[in-house]
């Protein structure tokens, strides 16, 4: 029998198993999640070296705030708060959202769709899995923690780059991209909230340089320090920082940018699967996208960042649930 070469159209329309879409989605979310947790750990480690002597309470609070990135609690283990938090968030397999469990979950999902992703993507996530479980990883964590965290961040960066460069832009790619954007929005909301937890109440008591350092590390945790400086130079005014993280149109890690990414991905998925309908997740994201397009920073400030981010987060969460209902539970 002759094998037909599918046309571009039919290649795009090639069916995608719901279970596969589900696994691609979670694979992508876990990779993105690991990156944020690793960056949070790296920046905090670095920050606490910079600030010098802080009151114990404030010092611990910086660490504790990180636990909220994954909704974890402080374990009952010996040692100071800092090492308990870093150990849990790095290596505790029982802690959902720790680096080791996110990488393992990403790999487990990738393994279930091994035939749907590229060899490059698979080998990156598979190698990361074996690496983080090795003694060398532990040693690096003890000796050069920043380097250890950077290696995890680079796994995500490499994986996402490989996704862009090797995966055809079919439904598979769109689900990966959708998941990445949704996870990034959620994690960004959590990071800003965690930073507010870490120093909001005591902000007034901090001297000016410390305040600047706190806001700088917030933008650092969103991987935006250079982009921010190019936009506002060294002015780390809280309003500007928050505005940048939420609304900056061209910054690939801002909330607005990723809402529009997610919206684009879901509407393309919908066009390929059920072109005549309006997808419920698309509706939620479309409205949020419009809100952000016409948002006014001073209005956001009046509502309060915390409140505003909470509402963004819950709308994005709703979109995620709707995606699952529409595409994965068929």
């Amino acid at each position: 029998m002759d094998l037909m070469i599918p046309t571009e159209e039919s290649a795009l329309r090639r069916p995608l198993l719901s279970r596969v879409a589900d696994s691609l989605y979670w694979m992508s979310r876990y990779v993105e999640r690991a990156e944020h947790v690793a960056r949070g750990l790296r920046i905090t480690t670095n920050l606490l070296m910079d600030v010098g002597d802080l009151p114990d309470e404030l010092y611990d609070r910086q660490w504790l705030s990180l636990l909220s990135l994954v909704g974890a609690t402080l374990p009952d283990s010996p040692g100071d708060v800092g090492s308990r938090v870093t150990r849990t968030l790095s290596f505790d397999a029982g802690c959902n959202g720790s680096l080791v469990s996110s990488i393992a979950n990403a790999r487990e999902n990738a393994r279930a769709v091994r035939s749907e992703i590229s060899a490059e993507m698979w080998e990156t996530i598979n190698a990361a899995y074996w690496t983080i479980r090795s003694d060398e990883a532990r040693q690096k964590f003890e000796e050069q923690p920043e380097e250890f965290y950077t290696s995890i961040i680079n796994v995500s960066m490499l994986f996402q780059g490989q996704t862009e460069e090797t995966l055809p832009q079919s439904q598979r790619w769109m689900f990966v991209r959708l998941a990445k954007a949704l996870e990034r929005i959620d994690m960004t909301c959590r990071i800003v909230q965690a930073r507010l937890d870490a120093f909001e109440e005591v902000e007034d008591a901090l001297d000016a340089p410390l305040r600047t350092i706190q806001w700088m590390s917030t933008i650092r945790m969103c991987c935006g320090i250079e982009a921010y400086r190019r936009r506002f130079m060294a002015d780390f005014d809280p309003l500007k920082v928050a505005g940048f993280i939420i609304l900056e149109e061209t910054f690939p890690r801002s909330i607005r940018f990723n809402v529009s990414e997610a919206l684009d991905a879901i509407s393309r998925i919908r066009k390929l699967t059920t072109p005549e309908t309006i997808d419920p997740a698309e509706r939620v994201l479309g409205r949020l996208d419009a809100d952000l397009d016409y948002a006014d920073l001073s209005e956001i400030a009046r509502v309060g960042f915390r409140e505003y981010l909470k509402s963004v987060q819950s709308r994005v969460h709703e979109a995620g649930v709707l995606v699952q209902q529409t595409y994965f539970l068929k």
Partner: peptide
Amino acid sequence: YMRTTAGLR
């Protein structure tokens, strides 16, 4: 049939 994102196939 298989369950796909676009329904049954």
